[in-house]
Design a protein around this nucleic acid. Sequence first.
RNA 1: GUCCCCGUAGCUCAGUAGGAUAGAGCGCAGGAUUCCUAAUCCUGAGGCCAGAGGUUCGAAUCCUCUCGGGGACACCA
Length: 558
Amino acid sequence: MKEDIINVVSQSVEKIGKNLDLTDLSVEIEVGMPKRKEFGDFSVNTAMLIANKIGKKPREVAELIIENLPQEKDELFNKVEIAGPGFINFYVKEEAIVNKLLQIENAGEKFGTSNLGNGEKVLVEFVSANPTGFLHMGHSRNAVVGDTVARILSASGYDVTKEFYINDAGRQMNLLGESVLIRYKELFGHSEELPEDGYKGEYVKDIASQIKAEKGDSLLQDSAEQASTYCRELAKGILLEEIKKDLADINVLFDEWYSEVENIHTVSAESEDTKLSQIKALLNSKGVLEEREGALWFKATEFGDTQDWVLIKSDGSPTYFLADIAYHLDKYERGFDRIINVWGADHHGHVSRLKAALRSIGLDDSRFNVLLIQFVRLMREGKEVAMSKRAGSYVTLKEVAQEVGADVMRFFLLMRSSESHLDFDLDLAKKESSENPVYYIQYAYARIGSIFRKAQEEGITQSSNNLALLKAPEEIDLVKKLLLFPEVLEDSAKSLAPHKVAYYLQELAAQFHVYYNKCRVVDENKDISSARLYLITCAQTVLGNGLKLLGVSAPERM
RNA sequence: GUCCCCGUAGCUCAGUAGGAUAGAGCGCAGGAUUCCUAAUCCUGAGGCCAGAGGUUCGAAUCCUCUCGGGGACACCA
């Protein structure tokens, strides 16, 4: 629809330019959709933008533009008029709008998709929790947003890979191993205090019990290091499986599980050096390292960051930042055109240092984007659900998913802009009523299914032969809303903002419900009925496509 | 102290590469069903877009400052 407006207006402007002998009249035609019906279906502010160049008042320029519109305007518009300071408002013919339904029907599941990404390879890395415990609510927002961004980019013509970076190296993992070992020893009556920042959750005891069941007391004979390593590796395997399962239960699936230990800290087949020592050498060759106080520093300040950072600690062990640089170099080397990381907002300070590091080794950091996700507060009965990570008592992803279901879980985590804090209202999430926006949308989809079943009983089938009969304001509004979907999807892809799709679906569902209450689809007049069935087929297609993008199911009946 | 996010209706939030009289859901007060699912719809009340300056034809949106809420500023991850 908008393309039609752009098309006729630019033709007009071009003609004016020619007539007045103005060469640089080129201007981007911005098509707006007025909020108020009196201002028509579409409006254009072009006259105000080029008034200066022409040397006339905006309203006079608008007059000129209208005079020079091409002939086809008569087929498209009921009227075109000037308003306000110089807007041109277009009132589109109902028939021209309704005929666009054919595009939706033809495209079907593809309606809304685009080639915005032009096949570019994108890596979306998200969740990337270290496997030392279960995923909690914070992870769940990261998971759902990351997954949905990936779906939206796929639908927009990008070649997307979803990756989970398994943070399985370093101190945290060793602590996990030690914690499990202590619980294991407890089972044999050896009492020992957990370290200060050890893992206190019940699952640590469960894993210890499992080891006892499998290995008996044999670990007690091993050296502390051997035993702890065994515990660590076993716990890692178990927890990773739990993480995968929890994510799969909310429809989050990954293409790659990238282990830090295996890929960054281990010598690979094609090289005799680890990626970790390679990156160190590379940074060194760029002259961006410096030894100070027994540690090795990256001079990030030379690349615009506010401070320098340690890469190798004075005890000789690498920081995770060094591994992170190696990991991100690897992302570039794997040939991704765009690299998107989804991080919790508490990591925002790491963005500038990683970008600095990428620049220091000659990589284009504009291809690297970090999506920062703000925190989730779980609310029950109007109060925040207390979480204490220290005591090991936090609400897990699994608990909430089981309580409210995957559909509600996903939608609630998607319905706010990622950069806003999100209150997750458990009471609302469990309500099976109109208050719950998930059901509101799904109900619209199911209602359409119900109409089809009725139509089948009556022996009426849809047809595009009588679309001109669709002229009630409610149905025109519905069509217009449907036609907006590709634009919403594109906008959402450009801004990496899934909530825009969620909002759109609520508006679309609302428009459908209005229509349903106003216009009877299965009616005596078979011609109208067939046209209306055609319309609601399109509505169901768009609702379905949108829900699929969000990873939410679309039920045939409720 | 430096940096990031936020401040819009009673509540939760959209709207921010500047557009016309600022939106939705919930909550509140009323109303609609002999007919495709009332998990729906309709009507109404409710606003100094935190505040103050600035930029211009035009600002919730851009710039500066102030105030308030959250977060980050490790030889942790």
